[in-house]
Amino acid sequence: MDSPPGGFNFTESEMSFTPNIQAFCCHYTSQQSLAEGAESLKADGMPENVTLNRLVCGGKLKEITLLKAFEEGADAVFFVGCPVDACHNKKGSERAAKRVLAVQKSLQELGLGAERAEMFHCARGFHLEFVEAAQLMHKRISALGPAFDGGSK
């Protein structure tokens, strides 16, 4: 089997695997993206298997919310918040990063792999980085495989 672009060596099961990725983002990093609508986001390259969940602020992100996503079938989660030094609510983005870190530690402990949770910082409004974060996670988790069936050990 030929190796796909990007240097990943996919098995046959991985080739057919479409990861369930739950994205969480604050109101400010997501507002323009959501305003554009699903079709425009898709045109920008947003993977269709990435589900957006909007929070009012990164400060409202709870560890349990990310863990519940895994219970409900997610293969990965990530949060997109404001830049650390430019959070609309001062500390929300920093707090979100702490929650993501806690989940990463737990996933590592459970043998699922810390890389199934990630924190991204994006400037307010629409930026390609928002879509690129989703693409990066899609690529990463497609290579890792399902969380609960032959995934990262």
Partner: peptide, 17 residues
């Protein structure tokens, strides 16, 4: 209560794995 809820979730995820 918050930490217990998190732990219960981690146990469920661990068992699922």
């Amino acid at each position: 209560e918050r930490e217990a809820e998190i732990l219960a979730s981690l146990i469920r995820i661990g068992l699922k794995k």
